[in-house]
Design a protein around this nucleic acid. Structure first.
Lengths: 205, 205, 205, 205
DNA sequence: AATGAATGAGCATTCATTCAT
DNA sequence: AATGAATGAATGCTCATTCAT
């Protein structure tokens, strides 16, 4: 049997090394040398598996989006009903704290800033945002429908929840310790629940 | 005999040129050459007025914080009562759209990412966050007190509102057009108002 | 698979290129570009093998000290008796004239001036001076002991001889042709011999 | 009466400021800004009084040579006989220790290194060396003549003494504390005296 | 004479990318 | 696949010199 290539494995290692390096150094200062050291690989090897540094970044954005998705799916499995599913989602996103996550969150913040200037990063970042919006849309619509409320406010509400999440990542990374611990998930949930509770009942009959 | 100093004027020009450049290029790619061109100055002059590029960035963070403060104060003047003051605050922060502001918002997002890795930037960024938190704390406490509600949730609520604001900046800069237009201020206000309305009345009698 | 490292070889080449460049341009004007051209290497490569230019200078100081040591050892091999050993030492240091040596001497003078202001250079320069002093101390003590003379004057005498050597380097580099040719080794030896001859006999019996 | 220009005074201040700055920073790092600050003058003023920085250096070399000359003349006044005059000379050069002198000595060492690469500095440095040699020649010849000794060795002896002086400056500046304190003047004198004592009597009758 | 802002060439250093092995 | 040396363009920063006031 032919020797299996380990390219996929290597690519994943490199992407995770960028994640770790970027969390502490930002994107520009995450040099190929630094990433290679983090990954325990020779610098030249990175360009064997990826044509450019930017390509590694794009792969990382997709990986982070996928990781985020996985986390929700894992928690959503045990959730029943629309409200519980929404809670699972918010906890998946905002119930942070574990080691690897802190780095992922910091990297995500850095990616957000790169998206401001790099069209290619912006494109995949926006894909991730759209996907998130679609998911939130679905979850919130289900919640409102469950309570026979109007779904008119869903787009704005979804946007507000997404903003709260992104902002929480930003503040957790750049101003750690300034905000109260563990406020995020609970408060976000409370805000949404009270908003929904106060929403007018649906015109449908 | 001597020569009148124009340093303050020049420093301000340079800081605004960094703002404009950073909004489109990020911090690292906002080179001294680019900033100088934007300001219409010789590159060397930037280092005559600022020791390092990082120093210009710190000055910018302080300038943006001051600009933000001013904007709230201008709007708050016409506001009466705690609820109107809170609305004025949220509109000052999230009622964006005008030209200069878009750049300031993008620059702020980039600064947030730099704060992740540069301790000195982080320090001034955190000062700005703390100041914002204190202001929000005061505004929310007044709102709740006005309606004789418990103020126990104020810290978490303030953090959530701040996160929503930072996240809105992020999304507006990195994913323009993906989110509904003008959702931010109104939705944020609605979320807070409904949250407060549903809050338990204060134990005080 | 891997690639054989040639770092040691390259580092040595770079150090010798600094030596040659510094002899004619001084340290500050010995730019990385100039050194690279002298070595026939790309400028960037110098920073691949040395972190900073100052680091190349430190390596050069150590190299020159080692070269000096070697030269004495080669000459001392044929010397018999303390007096001949001392003569071998002084000739090793002051019997200059050959091509490579002129450059080494000029570089050493430049290094001496850099030691005035760069603490790290000063440290290694002082190490070299101490080593030289220890060697001179030993040689002079042996000479005096051989002739049953007091060794009380050895420290001052060693210092004077060392100063004469350093000064001869200085004058040979900065005022070539002003001083008589080939005076140095012979006169230094004569001064020391007559000093010893006139020294009081040791109190030991 | 017309207002007297203070140019000469200013020029002297600037030269002394270069002396002080160079002692601690070397020549290249003694920037116009730094020298101006040391002198308490505006940077632009330096180029009003001197066309280039190199011109200040040349003036300094001449000033130091003149200072050195003055010091000998002051001490020589009280000296009687050739031997005492020689002792006065050596003490004038090597009897260091006072504050201003340490800086002058360090600056002289730096100048010696600059003379290696700057032809114009080398020229005035060599003038100073020649003048010193002539003086030493005269003093040593007188000493030998006084004792009816051959003066054949004078050139080599003068060169050796000059080298010892320059080397003592170098070592005092770049390796302070490594050599015994106050060895220089005494040992130099002793070496010369014993050399002369052992010299053959003059063929003259 | 004096000031201090302005200029621009030159420097050490960084770094993505390439390439011979 | 893998290594690590090599390249060279780009960057922040320095600094002698100039100049308007």
């Amino acid at each position: 049997m032919a020797r299996k290539t380990n390219s996929e494995q290597r690519r994943a290692e490199i992407v995770m090394a960028l994640l770790a390096t970027m969390a502490g150094h930002g994107y520009e200062k995450a040099t190929i040398q630094l990433i290679a050291r983090e990954a325990g690989l020779a610098p030249g090897l990175l360009h064997y598996h990826f044509k450019t540094k930017a390509e590694i970044l794009l792969a990382l954005v997709k990986t982070l989006a996928a990781m985020s998705r996985q986390r929700y799916l894992a928690l959503a499995d045990n959730a029943e009903g629309a409200t519980q599913k929404l809670a699972a989602y918010i906890h998946a996103r905002l119930g942070l704290g574990e080691g690897a996550d802190l780095k992922a969150v910091a990297a995500w913040v850095v990616i957000g800033a790169e998206a401001v200037r790099q069209p290619e990063v912006r494109a995949v970042y926006q894909d991730a945002v759209r996907e998130e919006m679609a998911l939130l849309h679905e979850l919130l619509s289900a919640c409102l429908a469950e309570q026979r409320k109007s779904t008119a406010a869903v787009p704005a509400l979804a946007a507000a929840v997404l903003a709260m999440m992104e902002g929480a990542f930003q503040l957790a990374s750049a101003a750690p310790g300034v905000l109260p611990q563990g406020y995020a998930a609970q408060t976000a949930l409370a805000l949404v629940e009270r908003f929904i509770a106060a929403e007018a009942t649906s015109g449908l009959r």
